[in-house]
């Protein structure tokens, strides 16, 4: 597993965590058929937090963050995002989805649309932003992820790292208050991981509330204020990064960390 050594140049001046609750998950359970994939999840995320979720594959970490924008439905317990409870009311679901950005492992860009159209589509059709303004906004965020010159290309013409940065820009165009990252660098070649992580660090520096499922422990150490370790559908351990990496309490965590950092 690649552990990227980051220069300790992360600007922490704007990384402030407020008392305001961004996401409240209480007693949440989820099953896939009869398989109990998430068990008694309790998690409160405050605005401005940068949380890294790690754990072995199949531990339910992706499922957890996919529950937060209801790509997966939970069967018991409660999830409240920005004061809106996720339940069968589709209006609530759409509201939460338009406030929460998500970046996927496989980018999931729309291949039939240009980079610019990928970025303007949701603002125009969901937020009813006038086209001209949507284009300006998209160009702003494409500049931010450092690929404005690719605006009129199609996703298939870009490298993996560029595609993932477009995906981040596409999410940002909806002006989300929370960003979810589902293994954003796992499908990338090693030389492209850094450009995506740099973009994510920049976002964190601006105070975005972020939940990242990732194996990039260097990123966790440099940016996260909290690391959550999951196994078997449960939160096994959570702590601030320094404590988590240097002094893991549970045996399961120690085992996991020795496996991914040992070599």
């Amino acid at each position: 597993m690649s552990t990227l050594e980051l220069e300790p140049s992360v600007d922490t001046s704007k990384m402030q965590i407020s008392d305001e609750v961004a996401i409240q998950i209480a007693d949440m359970n989820k099953w896939f058929g009869t398989f109990h994939v998430l068990r008694d999840i309790d998690l409160t995320v405050y605005r401005g937090e940068r949380i890294v979720i790690c754990g072995p594959s199949g531990s339910g970490k992706s499922t957890l963050i996919r529950c937060i924008n209801r790509l997966e439905e939970h069967q018991a317990g409660k999830i409240v995002v920005d004061g809106t409870e996720l339940n069968s009311d589709l209006k609530n679901v759409d509201k939460v989805r338009s406030e929460v950005g998500m970046v996927f492992q496989h980018f999931n860009l729309f291949p039939h649309l240009t980079v610019l159209e990928n970025c303007t589509l949701a603002p125009i059709w969901v937020r009813k932003v006038p086209r001209k303004e949507a284009v300006e906004r998209a160009m702003h965020f494409l500049e931010k992820v450092k690929i404005p010159e690719q605006a009129n290309k199609y996703p298939g013409q870009l490298s993996g790292g560029q595609q993932q940065r477009v995906a981040i820009a596409r999410s940002l165009c909806m002006m989300p208050r929370i960003m979810l990252f589902d293994e954003p660098t796992s499908a990338l070649d090693p030389e492209m991981i850094k450009e995506v992580l740099d973009t994510m660090i920049e976002l964190a520096e601006e105070g975005m509330t972020m939940l990242c499922v990732t194996h990039e422990m260097g990123f966790a150490q440099a940016v996260a204020n909290r690391v959550i370790f999951m196994a078997d559908g449960q939160i096994v351990e959570q702590n601030e990064p320094k404590e988590f990496f240097n002094n893991p309490k549970s045996e399961r965590t120690q085992q996991f960390l020795s496996q991914i950092i040992g070599h």
């Binding site: 989805r97 929460v100 059709w125 999410s171 909806m174």
Partner: peptide, 8 residues
């Protein structure tokens, strides 16, 4: 999923 996640 991407379309859902964007709120469409």
């Amino acid at each position: 999923e991407a379309a859902d996640a964007l709120g469409l």
